[in-house]
């Protein structure tokens, strides 16, 4: 069946750690026959994602025309975790025309195929060869971040479950399939655990990156900025109340604010901006005092 390949959603940070995947010959399975010439070049990520085509929405920040004889565009597309390197050459005419006219920076949506280049052992370059590109708006970018985060989290959950199960190879495959995990992901995770370098450490790190990507998003959006403004006001009010002209113990203040439902980071943010603006100072270590 000549099915169109799914465009995977993946963050740059995970994409750049992908390695070429040679599919093992599966015995008896239906897919065993797909080892023919039409099999795409598959890549495997440390968290077990098997990919070839990807769909990326990000900011185009750099664009170069490289290549000696033929025109070849090289672009850098940034997402909240890192950057994708994208190429478009004479065999990608639509994408090339796009790159020759696009203004930088801009939000762009891009579909392309993952390429891997290994000039010498141990040095690997992963890039995207563009198929279709277009300028989009910020809302589509934000949705891509959330969609990609969602699919990454789903995968990380399965991965962590797989690690906890303690099984490997065939046994792990069976365990995952039993749980309703798709054959592709089950196989990907099993292979990642077997072949990738330190996949467990990477997935932990990836979780942190996804979290930061999502947090950065919320600070960007207007609604939450409004809500944050209110909460900042609240923090300042609370500080005035507790300060009483004599200063307040920072740890006690932090505790009081958190107990009223204000996130720690936000309290720190507000205090930092007060310091920066000269509105408060630290008469003794650990004590903060409002000016005036």
């Amino acid at each position: 069946m000549l099915k169109r390949e799914v465009a995977k959603r993946v963050f740059a940070r995970e994409f750049e750690t992908c390695r070429a995947l040679e599919m093992p010959v599966r015995a008896g399975g239906e897919k065993a026959s797909s080892g023919d010439l039409k099999t795409p070049n598959l890549l495997l990520s440390p968290s077990g994602l098997v990919l070839n085509r990807v769909f990326v929405v990000g900011v185009i920040t750099e664009l170069d025309c490289v290549g000696a004889q033929n025109e070849m565009w090289k672009a850098r597309i940034v997402d909240p975790t890192g950057a994708f390197t994208v190429y478009a050459g004479q065999y990608q005419p639509d994408a090339s025309i796009f790159f020759s006219t696009v203004e930088i920076p801009a939000f762009i949506a891009l579909t392309g195929k993952a390429r891997i280049y290994e000039p010498e052992p141990g040095s690997v370059f992963v890039s995207v060869r563009a198929e279709e590109v277009n300028v989009v708006d910020e809302e589509i970018r934000n949705r891509w971040v959330v969609d990609t985060a969602e699919q990454t989290v789903e995968r990380l959950e399965v991965f962590s479950d797989a690690v906890e199960s303690g099984s490997r190879d065939e046994e792990l495959l069976e365990y995952l399939l039993e749980k309703g995990v798709s054959g592709e992901l089950a196989e990907g995770i099993s292979l990642a655990l077997e072949r990738m370098r330190a996949p467990e450490e990477f997935t932990k790190l990836l979780g942190v990156f996804v979290k930061e990507a999502l947090q950065a998003l919320e600070f960007d959006s207007e609604n939450s900025a409004g809500a944050d403004g209110d909460r900042k006001e609240f923090v300042l009010e609370l500080l005035r109340e507790m300060d009483g002209g004599k200063g307040v113990d920072y740890a006690a203040f932090l505790e009081a604010a958190v107990s009223r439902g204000v996130p720690e980071e936000l309290v720190e943010d507000v205090v930092r901006s007060l310091f920066a603006g000269g509105q408060c100072y630290e008469p003794r270590i650990g004590i903060i005092r409002l000016v005036g």
């Binding site: 750049e16 750690t17 750099e62 490289v66 090289k74 850098r76 950057a83 390197t85 190429y87 050459g89 390429r115 891997i116 280049y117 000039p119 141990g122 040095s123 690997v124 370059f125 992963v126 890039s127 995207v128 060869r129």
Partner: peptide, 12 residues
Amino acid sequence: ETADSTGGRGFA
């Protein structure tokens, strides 16, 4: 090694 994947030619 791969952190700076922009440094090389990414196509074979």
